[in-house]
Nucleic acid binder design. Structure first.
Lengths: 133, 133
DNA sequence: ATGACTGCAAAGACTTTGCATCTTT
DNA sequence: AAAGATGCAAAGTCTTTGCAGTCAT
């Protein structure tokens, strides 16, 4: 069962993810923690992210511009992803209720454990950058 | 404006995508077409997929087990993804209506152009493989 | 001590791209 | 001929992993 030992860096990584709403990449976390943990390695960040995800402590939001984005907020909510700048923004609205789960289950014969609702488009900042307003 | 020339292989790739509901990967398409087009290269598949996607002729469904999955059916519908075997199954149910789009727009100030609703879990086949039924 | 965690660097996997060649128009 | 499309192989990115050393229990 792979008993988990305490790890200062692991705590820092989890804390960092939970302390931001930018839905960071592994690289972002690495850079953010590097100043405080000069000997931190990217491999450790990846390893811990995989661990957190396996344990349900964080969630993957999907791949944006080739990099996986993570979310420390595991409560059900949707996301908006800017296809221009790659920003991932929380959207506190979600309509996938129990009835929908049941419907998917009925139609596919599968066991449904989670879902993701994601919107795409251009974020406010990118829109304004174009119009110059 | 990059006028497009006719290409036998391009047609075959698009046709292949549209002729399956497996939401294939680039590799899958490559293998599927290789017998009939022995000199087809993987690069060509990727190039055309990128082109189709840019033109809205196909849609990316997301990355599953590290590989992007494509869908030739661009009509609005949801997907179920089996986290065990990676199967991607169409779900003809979707609740993201205009009101939701408007809500996201209002909350984020962004322009919303599309969305994706994806369910995760274990597909029927994988469930049965476990129980041995 | 024993098992877990990490740094480092190499390896892996998927996708993109440069260039010469062949096709389409 | 001019512009576009492709094959091939190299390069690029992101992520995973083997190994030896370090830390937690």
């Amino acid at each position: 069962m792979a008993a988990r030992n305490y790890s200062r860096k692991r705590e820092a990584i989890l804390s960092k993810i939970r302390g931001t709403d930018t839905h960071p990449t592994a690289e972002w976390l690495y850079r953010a923690l590097k100043p405080q943990y000069p000997d931190l390695s990217l491999g450790t960040v990846y390893r811990n992210l995989a661990l957190f995800r396996a344990e349900g402590e964080i969630v993957g939001v999907g791949t944006v511009h080739g990099q996986e984005r993570f979310d420390g907020d595991t409560s059900p909510h949707a996301h908006f992803i800017c296809t221009d700048c790659g920003a991932v923004i929380d959207v506190k609205a979600d309509t996938a209720d129990d009835r929908l789960y049941a419907a998917v289950r009925a139609r596919t014969g599968a066991s449904v454990t989670s879902h993701a609702l994601t919107f795409y488009g251009s974020c406010k900042a990118c829109l304004e950058a174009v119009t110059g307003s």
